[in-house]
Computed example of a mutant assay.
Amino acid sequence: MLQLLDENIWTVAGPQVRVLGFGYPTQTVVVRLKDGDLFIWSPTQLTPELKTAVDALGPVRWLVSPTAMHNLFLGEWQAAYPDARLYAPPGLRQRRPDLAFNGDLQDGPGHPWSDEIDQVHVTGNRIAVEVVFFHRASRTALFADLIQQLDPASLKGWRALIARLDLMTGDAPQTPRKFRLAFTDRKAARAALARITAWPTRRVLMAHAPPVLEDGQAFLTRTFAWLRG
């Protein structure tokens, strides 16, 4: 259930999502803004228990998906919170025409939460544009798919081999090989990375990896050294 990370920011582990037989952990982050409204990052499965816990924190106002691939549970959150506003990253409107979006995630400020949460588009990748967020008060960066780490014990046979070759089962979270190869505009990606690594990050929360709770800025610098080379 909800785990308090710092003042006004919580995490919750969702169910594993299977893609081509690979089990991916899921995680949602809940931020309570200064006005009391809740910002929900990468909504995971909304169980009755989770809804009760979220409702106790405040009104759900903003629902955001960090990439077009993080869309599986958006419909149930929108149904449960019809007054919340759903924002789409690049590509999600086309992937989910069944959802009613209220806005698009742009690069940089200009959003209702921008006084408290920064965001950067990491572009130039054929797989997806990822919107990386930074909660200033807790110094927490939020990553969806650009950094991953799967439990090797959860994989067997050819899937274990593929995951290892894809750099998803190493000793530390890192960028999967398929994402590295999918960057066609590294200049744009490096420009985005420069903005991200300038944040005074303490923690890094990832949808598909264990959290990094200290020295987050140094972790991000190390993790993306391959892109700067």
Rank of each mutant, 00 (worst) to 15 (best):
E7G: 07
I9C: 13
W10M: 06
T11A: 13
G14Q: 08
P15G: 10
L20M: 14
L20D: 13
L20E: 11
G21F: 00
G21I: 03
T26C: 12
T26P: 12
T26F: 08
V30D: 00
V30Y: 08
V31C: 12
R32L: 06
R32N: 08
L33H: 02
G36H: 02
L38Q: 02
F39L: 13
F39V: 00
W41F: 15
Q45R: 15
Q45T: 13
L46T: 06
L46F: 00
L50E: 02
L57H: 10
R61W: 03
L63A: 07
P66Q: 01
H70M: 04
L74G: 02
G75F: 00
G75I: 01
E76V: 01
E76Q: 14
E76C: 02
A88W: 03
P90R: 10
L92W: 04
P97F: 03
L99V: 02
D104W: 00
Q106F: 00
P112F: 00
S114V: 08
I117T: 12
Q119Y: 01
Q119A: 07
V120S: 06
H121N: 11
T123C: 07
T123D: 11
R126F: 07
E130R: 03
A137H: 15
A137I: 08
L142C: 04
L142V: 05
A144N: 10
L146G: 06
L146N: 09
I147H: 06
Q148N: 13
L150M: 05
A153R: 15
S154L: 08
R159D: 13
I162L: 13
A163H: 02
L167T: 14
T169Y: 00
D171Y: 07
P173Q: 08
P173C: 04
K178Y: 15
L181E: 09
L181C: 03
F183Y: 09
D185R: 09
K187N: 08
A188Y: 07
L193H: 05
R195A: 05
R195F: 01
I196G: 06
T197C: 10
A198L: 03
A198R: 13
V204P: 06
L205T: 04
M206D: 00
A207L: 09
A207T: 14
P210E: 12
V212Y: 00
V212G: 03
V212Q: 10
D215M: 10
F219A: 09
L220R: 05
R222Q: 15
R222A: 11
L227F: 10
G229A: 14
